[in-house]
Every structure is written in structure tokens, then in C-alpha cells.
């Protein structure tokens, strides 16, 4: 059962309202940024910045929040990531998630199951596109794929996810 019904409807503007959303979704935003940037310090900094900016947002759902987190991560990867690269190099996301909390341990098991349902190559492409913000051309060049094949492979990956989450 989700806890979204506890939030005030369509109002993310007040301080308390942003904090309520943080309590509910902070772990997803922080986790996403951590996975994308592999840097706990940068992920923490940007989590605050994503929620801070969220008080002025018109759309206040989790989808919008994750989209904002992704935009922030991609922008950080393009500009500031080298500063934290040393930290990122030795970072193991799955280990960090397992050690974060009991929830983290549970999510880690579920993540492992979801990932095993994805074809390895499609999973790589999804991760490169979703978390690393690479373009079609960059993905195809890196994996030596025919031009224009990213879309179909992403489709396969998303279809696998839809099966996992029973969204068909």
C-alpha cells in the first residue's frame, strides 16, 4: 500500500509540504542520484537541490520529481562529475544500497530480480540511457550497434520491466 494519500493534494509549495514529500520519496531521489553519479556527497547535495527547487514546481508527483532528478544528474554528469570521480571510481551502488537500511536490503533483492529479467545487452542500453544520459549515437558507437537500433532494444528492456511490474 502506498502512502501518497497522506500528502496534501496538488500542493508542494509550502515548506512542510516539500518535507512531507521528502519523507515519502527522498530515498528514491537520493537512490536515483546515487546510482547515476556514484558519488554519495554529490547525490546528497543534488537531492537537497532537487527538493528545494520542487517547492516552485507546478507538477508535484513522483514521476515529475524523478524526471527532475534525472535532468539534474545528467547535467551534473556533463559538467561536474570529474570533481567527484575519485569518489565514484571506488563506489559500489548495490553494496551501498544493501548496507543503507532494512528497506535498502529488501529493495536490493527486488532490484536483482528485476535486472535478471532483462536481456543483458538491453539492460546495458537502458542503464546507459536512463542513468548516464548517453545519446542514441553515443550508445550505438560504444556498443558497436547498427544505427537506429537503440530504440528497439530500449523497447525490449521496457517491455521486460512492464512484465516484472505487471504493467501490461
Amino acid at each position: 500500500m502506498t502512502r501518497e494519500h497522506l500528502l496534501p493534494e496538488n500542493d508542494a509549495t509550502g515548506k512542510q509540504s516539500v518535507l512531507d514529500r521528502y519523507d515519502l520519496w527522498g530515498q528514491y531521489v537520493y537512490g536515483f542520484l546515487l546510482r547515476a553519479l556514484s558519488s554519495p556527497s554529490l547525490a546528497a547535495e543534488l537531492t537537497v537541490s532537487v527538493f528545494d527547487a520542487f517547492r516552485e514546481a507546478k507538477e508535484t508527483g513522483l514521476t515529475d520529481l524523478l524526471a527532475r532528478a534525472r535532468e539534474t544528474a545528467v547535467a551534473a554528469l556533463q559538467t561536474a562529475n570529474e570533481l567527484r570521480l575519485q569518489e565514484a571510481t571506488n563506489f559500489d551502488f548495490r553494496m551501498a544500497q544493501r548496507q543503507s537500511s532494512d528497506d535498502g536490503l529488501l529493495l536490493n533483492e527486488k532490484l536483482g530480480k528485476a535486472q535478471s529479467a532483462l536481456e543483458p545487452k538491453c539492460k546495458t542500453i537502458l542503464e546507459m540511457a536512463y542513468f548516464n544520459g548517453l545519446s542514441q549515437k553515443e550508445i550505438e558507437g560504444a556498443l558497436n550497434l547498427p544505427d537506429g537500433s537503440t530504440g528497439t532494444r530500449l523497447r525490449r528492456a521496457v517491455n521486460d520491466l512492464r512484465r516484472v511490474f505487471a504493467l501490461n
Binding site: 527522498g26 546515487l34 520491466l161
Partner: peptide, 18 residues
């Protein structure tokens, strides 16, 4: 589907972040 996948990457943020 992508949101659900992202949610599986959830990690409890450090306490001082709040």
C-alpha cells in the same frame, strides 16, 4: 515502468540531509 525501476534503486539518504 521506468518509475518503478527507479524506485527499486531507493537508498535511505543520510539523516543530516533532512
Amino acid at each position: 515502468a521506468l518509475d518503478e525501476y527507479a524506485k527499486l534503486h531507493g537508498v535511505q539518504p543520510p539523516e543530516e540531509l533532512r
